[in-house]
């Protein structure tokens, strides 16, 4: 049985009289232990799909089931890692950001939360910075804290919305390796949104390809041995105008 099943969801934004369809009848399912990548160019609604799974956006049709249960609001069983650096609470230190997440969500008692926070800070190699406030950290370090925080919460599924997109290329490559290692180590189920084909192939076990405006499923491929040029072709039907794709 699949952990997460997304069944024909359509997502729309309304502004006054106009409505904009971000994703149209998208279906896929994620199994336990998958690193499932949603890949597509800007404007294909991939972030909206992730928000819907997070419970922040209600589909106008279709349904989303996590372990067979309907998703209708945000909750600590699906933890988000965002692209933005301001996702850490600036008034809490690195350690307290994680401890707060664990205790506020009632997942762990205070003492256990502190131990867990220390373990995961260690995993992302930030022990020296556990007492630092986020504004003193670099962008890459902030994202590592966010990942540590999300993993420490022990969610059913990690939802990552282009967490490395705002990083420089070197840091990004390093972070990809680190994330991969952490996921393999602890067998996390991850749903990862990106517009970068190499990132998708590098990180994912399976890749869902979306076409833009509105987002529709083009294909689903195994990332093992996938060919970037072939994926690019599939995304754009051989039409090489897809200018904003990173190959």
């Amino acid at each position: 049985m699949s952990l997460l099943s997304v069944d024909g969801i359509t997502l729309q934004y309304r502004t006054g009289k106009h409505s904009f369809t971000a994703a149209y009848r998208v279906s896929f399912s994620v199994k336990d232990g998958d690193r499932f990548i949603i890949l597509g160019p800007s404007g294909c609604g991939k972030s909206s799909i992730l928000k819907a799974i997070g419970g922040y956006l209600k589909p106008v049709e279709g349904k989303i089931l996590l372990n067979g249960k309907h998703i209708d609001s945000p909750g600590p069983d699906r933890v988000f890692v965002f692209q933005e650096f301001d996702q850490l609470l600036p008034w809490k230190t690195v350690r307290d950001n994680i401890v707060f997440a664990l205790t506020a969500s009632h997942k762990f008692a205070r003492r256990e939360a502190e131990q867990r926070a220390a373990t995961f800070i260690e995993k992302v190699d930030l022990t020296k910075f556990a007492g630092s406030y986020p504004h003193t950290l670099s962008g890459g370090m902030k994202q590592r804290v966010a990942i540590a925080r999300a993993m420490a919460m022990g969610p059913e599924i990690l939802l990552m919305d282009e967490p490395f997109a705002a990083l420089d290329a070197l840091t990004r490559a390093k972070m990809q390796d680190e994330l991969l290692q952490l996921c393999v180590e602890s067998n996390f189920t991850v749903l990862f949104v990106t517009h970068s084909i190499p990132e998708a192939i590098r990180l994912g076990t399976r890749i869902l390809l979306l076409s833009p405006q509105p987002g529709r499923v083009k294909a689903e491929v195994e990332s093992e041995g996938a060919d970037p040029a072939r994926i690019h072709e599939m995304l754009f039907d051989g039409d090489m105008k897809g200018g904003n794709m990173h190959v």
Partner: peptide, 14 residues
């Protein structure tokens, strides 16, 4: 308050 922080807050089920 940024929408990211709001979403983070909601994520904790407070």
């Amino acid at each position: 308050v940024s929408s990211t922080l709001r979403m983070v807050g909601q994520n904790y089920g407070l």
